[in-house]
Design a protein around this nucleic acid. Sequence first.
DNA 1: GATGAATGAGAATTCATTCAT
DNA 2: TATGAATGAATTCTCATTCAT
Lengths: 182, 182, 182, 182
Amino acid sequence: MDKRQLIIEAAIELFCLNGFDKTSTSAICTKANVSKGLVFHHFKNKNELLREAFATIATVVEEVSGKIDMTGQPKDRLLSLINTIFDSMAQPEHRRLYQFNFNVMMQPSTREIIADLIAERSQFQRGIVGSIFSAISEENSHIRSLLFIAEIDGIAMHYLFSEEEFPLDLIREQFIKKYCEP
Amino acid sequence: MDKRQLIIEAAIELFCLNGFDKTSTSAICTKANVSKGLVFHHFKNKNELLREAFATIATVVEEVSGKIDMTGQPKDRLLSLINTIFDSMAQPEHRRLYQFNFNVMMQPSTREIIADLIAERSQFQRGIVGSIFSAISEENSHIRSLLFIAEIDGIAMHYLFSEEEFPLDLIREQFIKKYCEP
Amino acid sequence: MDKRQLIIEAAIELFCLNGFDKTSTSAICTKANVSKGLVFHHFKNKNELLREAFATIATVVEEVSGKIDMTGQPKDRLLSLINTIFDSMAQPEHRRLYQFNFNVMMQPSTREIIADLIAERSQFQRGIVGSIFSAISEENSHIRSLLFIAEIDGIAMHYLFSEEEFPLDLIREQFIKKYCEP
Amino acid sequence: MDKRQLIIEAAIELFCLNGFDKTSTSAICTKANVSKGLVFHHFKNKNELLREAFATIATVVEEVSGKIDMTGQPKDRLLSLINTIFDSMAQPEHRRLYQFNFNVMMQPSTREIIADLIAERSQFQRGIVGSIFSAISEENSHIRSLLFIAEIDGIAMHYLFSEEEFPLDLIREQFIKKYCEP
DNA sequence: GATGAATGAGAATTCATTCAT
DNA sequence: TATGAATGAATTCTCATTCAT
C-alpha cells in the first residue's frame, strides 16, 4: 500500500511499454490510481521518476549477476556468466525491462538524465566481466572484456527488437563455441 | 536552393542531435529557414519526415557497402568487410547518423514508423554478410552471420554512446583476431 | 465561481452568436476568463463541450414544455401547446438559443456529434404532441403530430432567421385558426 | 472542359456533402483536378465560390418552379404547387442540394455571405406563392403565404435530416387535405 | 500524505491566400 | 490560363508542473 512504490511500479510498466517520452504523468496517475499532486509530492519531477525507475531496474540486473557461479575455474565462470546472461535475456518478463534499458540509453534526452546511473552500472558490469577475463589471461583482458560486453549487448539488442525470429539458442551455442572452445 | 531538401537536411541534423521526439517541427523550420506551412506542404506528417530522413541515412550505409572489396578470397572479403565497417564507424561525420539510427530503432514509437525500412535494410545487410560467411563455410553460416551482425552493432553502440573512451582501434584489432586468425 | 459552469456558459453564448465551427476554444477561454488548459481539463474535446452546451439548452426546452396546461380538454391542451411554443419563440433571450439549435442540427459535422441527444429530444417532443393529437382523434394522429412539429419548426426557422419582419403574431393567429377552428 | 465550371461543380458536391466550413479549397482542387492557383484566379476567394455555388443551386429551384401548372383554377394551381414541391423534395439527387441550402442558411457566418441571394430567392418564392393565395382569397393572403412557405420548409427540413423514416407521402397527403379540402 | 483544479507554454497540423513562373 | 511552392496565422489539444485545500 506504499503509494510511492505504486507510482514507481506504474511508471516502470508504462515506460517499458511506451517509452519515457510517450508516457505522460497523467497516464502514470491513472495506472497507479493516485492523483497528479501526489506524484509531484513524492518526486521532484518526471525526470526523478525516470531515475527511480531505472534504479529499480538496475536491481534486477544485480540479482542476475548474483546467479553467476563464481566458484569454479575461470573458464567455467565464463561459461556460467554467458549462460546466466542468456537465461535472463530469454525470460519473457525481462524482455520489456531490457528494451526499456536500450530505449533510455539511446535517447540523448533520457540518457542525460541517468548518465551517472549508467556509468555506475557500467563499472559494475566491467568489474565482474573483467575479473573473469583477467583470470583467464592477463593479456588484453581489458579490451577483451569491453568487446565481450559490447557483443552481448549487440546480441541482446537484436534479440529484443527482432520481430522475426532471432534464434537465441543457436546464437548462444555459437557464441559459447567461440568463447569457450578455441 | 531546393527547400524540400533543405528541410530534410535540417531535420536529419536535429533528429541526430536531439532525437525525433525532442525535435519540434518549429525547430526544423527555424533551422531550414522556411515557414511551418512549407514543411506540411512537402511532407504529410512529421512521421513522413522521419521516414525521409531515415531513408536518406540508409543511402550512407549503402555507400559504405560499396566500398567493400569483394574481389579476393572469402577470408579477405571478410577482412575488408570488417575494416570498412570500422572505418565508417570511426568517421566523425557519421557518428551522429549512427546514433540517430540506434535512437530511432530502440524507441517503440519511432521504430513502428519505419518498420518497413528497417526490415529492408536488415535484409540488405544479411545478404552481404551472408554471402561472405557462406563462402567461407556453409556450416552454420546463417547463424554465424546473424551473430556477426549483432556483435558489430553491439560494438557500434558502445563506441557511439560511450563518453568515456571506448578504444575502437584496439577493439577492432581484437575483433579481427577472433574472426580472421583462428 | 464554478469555472466548469463558466466555461459552458461562455461556450453557449459564443456558439449561439457565431456557430460552433466559428468559435475557437481560445475565444471561449477569453470569454470565460480561464486558461486553455482548463477547458481540456474539464472537457475531453471541443465536441464534448458542444454536447454539454446542447444538453444545457435542452433544459430550456423542457422547462417550456412544463408550462403547457395539460388539464383541460384536448382542444384546449392543443391551444395551450401552440401558445406556449409561440411565447417561448418570441422571447428575445431565447432567440439565439433556438438559432443555435437549428445551426447545429443542419450542419452534418455538428449534427453527428449530438445525434443521440437530438434523437432523445425528438422522442420527448413527439411524446407530448402525440398525446394531445391522439386525444383529439386517433385517426392519423401520428402523421398529424409529425406534420405539426415540422410546421412549428418551419415557422420558428423563418421567424428566427428573417431579418425583415416575419409577423409572428399574425402567423400565430392564422396557425391557431387552422388547428383550432376548423 | 470549362475549368471554371468544373471547380463550381466540385465545390457544390463537396459543400453539399460536408458543408462549407468543412470543405477546404484543397479538397475542391483535388476533386476538380485543378491547381490551387486556378481557383483563386477564377474566384476572388472561397466566399465567392460559395456565392457561385448557391446561385447555381438556385437555378434548380427555379427549374422546379417552372413545372408548376399555372393554367387551371387557383385551387388547382395550389395543388400543383404543393405536388411539385413535394416531388422535388423526394428526388434523391436533390436531397443533398436542399440539405446544403438549410446548412448554409442556418449558419450565421455563411448566411451573411449570401444574404442578398437569399433575399432575392425569398422574394421569388413569395411572388409565386403569393399570387396563388391571393387568387384564392384576398383575405390574409400575405400571411397565409408566409405561413405556407414556412410550413413547407419545416416539412422539408424534417424530411431531409431525419435518419429514421419521415413518411413523406403520408405527410403530403395530410398536408394537401388541410390546404385543399377544407 | 493526498487531491484535483488551474496554468501556460508549446506541440502538430490545417488552411485560405499570394506570387513567381 | 494554369501551376504549385510558399506563407503565416489560427486551431485543437497535450502535458509537466503548481498550489490551495
